[in-house]
Design a protein around this nucleic acid. Structure first.
Length: 500
RNA sequence: GGUCCUGUGGCCGAGUGGCUAGGCAGAGCUCUGCAAAAGCUCCUACAGCGGUUCGAAUCCGCUCGGGACCUCCA
């Protein structure tokens, strides 16, 4: 297998992927904050890194994939209102904080299943790692890179920057950060405006609170990822993923914290997915333009004309390279839906072809076509190794679609391809579409009864057509169409069907 | 204001200096009781202006447009 190249945000170039320990990969991806429902934008990193996870496994690596659940809550804005986001919402909904967190965690898991993403190896929660976070903060203080004020602890960015590179990942210039004139409230405690909180003292009414060496409070914004990544992946690990919007300050600060505690740069390859936009603007809370995933699945949103299947969304996302912005629109989703259906229909009927039954020989009759097919199949790993180019992988698979359909329809003679190439193509398509890209083909296992019913109806329709009783045959076809099942006459009198 | 990304045909989107991306939509043809599906064919674009080069969507510069981050954000 050729080498995998990954675009590393840290070095701003594609680099050959070499794991720290041969055969093993440690990967950390920033997970959801479970204080509310996930929207389309959140789906992108989880699907992107699901494919990365799948591909690394396919490449033979034993991967430990860690994706956290942020359930301790981030702060609306430093000091403006020391209310934990989760605590605030909980009061509105009259729920216990942990009850709220559980509700949205469950919903998140359900959504991930809909998308057919594999569960991570470890899914640690922030609240379950308060001890580790406190220990890490203590270490940073001991090392002299943090200071305590009134029960809160802040990271000393200026000091860190004098010995290490702060801003390397995000391209920030430390002096600019230090001299920015913009005023934020509640900064009095900090020695410098670029400093960030490691631990915050909790106001009396604050619901989520833990005891610490500095008094009762709650962990700061960035420390959970450093603590959990270190615990499960070690002081240095291979891949860290997340959205581009986390580059600064979140990941930059994560590097700083971990570097102090572990005495090395924590991550070898930083990967960042780009944003999903809507009308050219980032989809995000702050812009008030989000479409929740449940709205997408149900079609209940003013911008949507119908419900969209999770696989359509997965396909839609994979049709673009993860590092490009992806513009959402109802129209774009409709196009993705149609394309996916055409692809899957072609592939599914091709899977049913038995090379022996169709009379394929050991040597194909059309060497040209064979060469083309082989060429496309061989191209797939090459494209994927080029920084996970799922868009080009899909485009290449689409090249095969006319060939597959034409074999199915008997337009291309059965023996054009050799039996072994037919088998190999079937296996390769399954591998890429299902195992690597995670596009689930068959809807459900309850298809058996439906299959039987359909065979019966097809029999009746064939008989009717035989007597040129088109009233009956059309009734069957139209009736099924009304139920969302499309019956298609094929050459030679056969019939096949698909449904939405 | 600072840092960075980006501008591709009706729409979405790949594109490593030279060879057709692909999808959706549209047009024609074939097949067909009709239909649907499918196959074949057509639609060949790279914001603008300069420059480098035998040759640029692809490199450089400028102009114009769009966006992201700098604050919670996938």
């Amino acid at each position: 297998m050729q080498s995998l190249y990954i675009y590393n945000s840290l070095t701003r170039q594609k680099e050959k992927f070499v794991p720290l320990v041969p055969g093993y990969v440690g990967m950390y991806v920033c997970g959801p904050t479970v204080s509310g429902e996930s929207h389309l934008g959140h789906a992108r990193p989880y699907i992107t890194f699901d494919v990365v996870y799948r591909y690394l496994q396919h490449a033979g690596y034993k991967v430990r994939y860690v994706r956290n659940i942020t359930d301790a809550g981030h702060f609306e804005e430093e000091g403006r209102d020391a209310t934990d986001k989760i605590a605030e919402k909980a009061q509105l909904e009259k729920l216990e904080p942990m009850e709220l967190v559980q509700k949205y965690t469950n919903l998140f898991h359900w959504t991930m299943e809909q998308f057919n993403t594999l569960p991570p190896s470890i899914e640690p929660t922030a609240t379950g790692h308060i001890i580790e976070q406190i220990a890490m903060i203590e270490e940073i203080i001991k090392a002299g890179y943090a200071y305590e004020v009134n029960g809160s602890v802040y990271f000393d960015v200026k000091k860190y920057a004098s010995n290490y590179e702060y801003g390397k990942l995000s391209g920030r210039v430390i002096d600019e950060l230090l001299t920015t004139t913009r005023e934020l409230e509640g900064q009095e405690e900090k020695r410098d405006r670029a400093d960030f909180a490691l631990w915050k003292a909790a106001a009396p009414e604050h619901i989520m609170r833990w005891k610490s060496p500095w008094g009762v409070g709650y962990p700061g914004w960035h420390i959970e990822c450093s603590a959990m990544a270190t615990k499960y992946l070690g002081g240095q690990f291979d891949i860290h993923g997340g959205g581009m919007d986390l580059l600064f300050p979140h990941h930059e600060s994560e590097i700083a914290q971990s570097t102090i505690c572990n005495h090395q740069a924590p991550v070898c390859y930083w990967m960042h997915n780009n944003m999903i936009t809507i009308n050219g603007r980032k989809m995000g809370k702050s812009y008030n333009n989000v479409i929740k995933l449940t709205e997408l699945f149900s079609g209940q949103h003013p911008l949507l004309t119908k419900a969209f299947h999770p696989m359509t969304i997965r396909f839609f996302i994979l049709q673009t390279h993860y590092s490009s912005t992806l513009d959402f629109s109802n129209e774009a989703l409709l196009a993705a839906e149609k394309g996916l259906k055409r692809l899957m229909d072609a592939v599914e009927s091709f899977y049913k072809i038995d090379p022996i039954l169709v009379g394929a020989k050991e040597i194909g009759a059309d060497p040209n076509l064979e060469a083309k097919v082989n060429g496309w199949l061989a191209q797939l790993p090459v494209l994927m190794n080029d920084d996970f180019s799922t868009a080009r992988v899909l485009a290449t698979i689409f090249e095969l679609v006319p060939v597959l359909n034409s074999i199915k329809d008997g337009i291309t003679p059965a023996g054009a391809l050799s039996a072994s190439i037919i088998l190999q193509t079937q296996a390769t398509l399954r591998l890429w579409l299902e195992t690597i890209l995670g596009l689930r083909l068959v809807q459900a296992a309850d298809q058996e009864k439906l299959q039987g019913v359909m065979e019966l109806l097809i029999d009746i329709r064939k008989e009717a057509k035989g007597r040129r009783d088109f009233i009956t045959s059309d009734k069957i076809r139209d009736g099924l169409a009304a139920l969302g099942i499309q019956l298609k006459d094929e050459k030679g009198g056969g019939m096949s069907w698909t449904h939405d």
